[in-house]
Design a protein around this nucleic acid. Sequence first.
DNA 1: CTGAAAGCGCTTACAG
DNA 2: CTGAAAGCGCTTACAG
Lengths: 358, 358
Amino acid sequence: MDKNNFSRIRIKDIARLAGVSAGTVDRVLHNRGEVSEKTRNKILSIIRKSDYHPDILASTLAARKPCRIAALIPRATDDSPFWKYPLAGIEEGLREIMYFGVSLERYYFDYSDRESFLQSAAGMINEKPQGIIMAPVFTEEASLLLKDFNRKGIPVVLINANICSGSCIAFVGQDSLQSGMVAARLMHYGLGDDADLLIINFTRERGNQGHIQKREEGFRKYYRENSKNNNSLLQQINIAEVGISREEKILEQVILSSRPGLRGIFVTNSRVFRVAGILEKNRINDIILIGYDLLQNNKDFLRKGTIDFLISQKPREQGYKSIMTLYHHLVLRKQVERSHYLPIDIITKENLEHYTFT
Amino acid sequence: MDKNNFSRIRIKDIARLAGVSAGTVDRVLHNRGEVSEKTRNKILSIIRKSDYHPDILASTLAARKPCRIAALIPRATDDSPFWKYPLAGIEEGLREIMYFGVSLERYYFDYSDRESFLQSAAGMINEKPQGIIMAPVFTEEASLLLKDFNRKGIPVVLINANICSGSCIAFVGQDSLQSGMVAARLMHYGLGDDADLLIINFTRERGNQGHIQKREEGFRKYYRENSKNNNSLLQQINIAEVGISREEKILEQVILSSRPGLRGIFVTNSRVFRVAGILEKNRINDIILIGYDLLQNNKDFLRKGTIDFLISQKPREQGYKSIMTLYHHLVLRKQVERSHYLPIDIITKENLEHYTFT
DNA sequence: CTGAAAGCGCTTACAG
DNA sequence: CTGAAAGCGCTTACAG
């Protein structure tokens, strides 16, 4: 039987050992100067010997300075509900740490509106938060912001997409290239070599499409490395989001004209339900369909078998980890890991129901 | 922009409003009597109106009563390292809540020694922990213990296997039946109908084999419901763990004699690396092999491609959730969910590396 | 540069 | 049945 006791030595004890007052110990503990080198060193050496751990409860209680964290993320919409999950994760984390005086300010922007991103960011900066969670949807603008935050000494955690070049404390998200490889692996495992495949990209305004491209790249990489499938069998199509009915037509035409050879479709984002709809409408059920994200639409098609596999980005856990990382940094003052690559979850009809928190 | 402020009304405020002292408010807050009905009701009504939330930091700081949690789990061994992961998860959780005075006492037992389970349990009971995490490896004995803890009012969280019939506050683990279905789905997706399959059970001393059986059941259920594969194609073999070399011989014989028809093998626990070894030795690479748990051996074979899929039980997260559930119950005094079925993770060579915390 | 005192919000004997 | 006081371990003005 082992025991795991926690801090017993108190500031008071150290003060007594050093022959000084608690206030002085506190001053060296927090490096706020106004202590002579001599006493400072004496206290420091005592601390080192004594494996002192501050009582963080007493500390935050006494300091009673609130810690305001801001989240700059896209607003979830009916059309694109993805971002409600990271937010839910952030809020779940918040509930666990609010006792430490942590509060959350939410700043939303429109996923496809660069201007709204900048405006929301400006509002956030005005409030001078102690820490920031940011979804860097618009790469260039986000990079500039990052530099600004860095200059101001505000720690930032990036969520979902990674543009962190030294100026953020951590990134939380998925390894996109690798997730494309996972999709390819599933495709290849089910179809073997020499099956006609189609990759569909639903693109949007230029901006954060980097990780979408990476997924396609990963998919191709897998096939290059593991299959005798020659590239001509691997078509790709980009669908600009220009209005659903027009898109549907184009897609339908491409798919139908590729039959009967076409055996598998990989959709590089959460819009896979669109393709599923087309397959269903045309009563096509001999095509393997793989895409991303556990949206309600997608889950329905997965249950019906129209979609074969979904890859989850663990959006909720992304949110949870983001705020917890900031908490570890700001409140606990612990070293945090720079990269948090979350698992690439493979979801089927059979394991779907147990991915409630994802 | 939203704000998320937390408790501002203090006991002192309520006391003032009720025209009593803080001590009296505290007494009704904690139901420890010695208050007249009249003042009690007055205070209660004020509390209800005021959305008072206790400051849990101040509360645990002032109460300074330690909360000792005990974990009764199998000792991890070289042969069977599985249990080191739940323990790691428990310890990870502990680090986050030790500030609240939570400490952990570990009680180990031998996974295949019923007697050691009882002895370790006795030692634990002696120390009168405030909460218990228990792996109910030996079903009958564990049931009796559960009743005893229940009588003593000690809350228990069961981990990994579920025998909780009302006398535990929560279960954390995997849905075994469903995980078998996931394995079958992967098998069937890769091989189609009418492939010869083999299910291998490595059994041990009678005891907690319930969830292993469930896995086989799930596997068969999937095939019954989804395939035209008739049952004669689905052989099953139980290997009693009687010594590795004898087992290897038997297994090798079974596998070789089933060739060339045999196309897939499902191993119902983490011993899948044993089967992988036999396949490798005999240069067999046209058999799909699926098993459980990210042990080092298994991961190596997954990387080499001898094992095609592993299903993870998320052992670390089981541990983490167990202790956090107890913490929510004991320290935060919150209602906790009864069942925590963790996701059934599908691991391939391609997504293995991002399942570090699992 | 240093110490003594008051206070964070809650709990706990103790006195009445 | 109730209140006043001391204390949990730390922080923060303030006085010197």
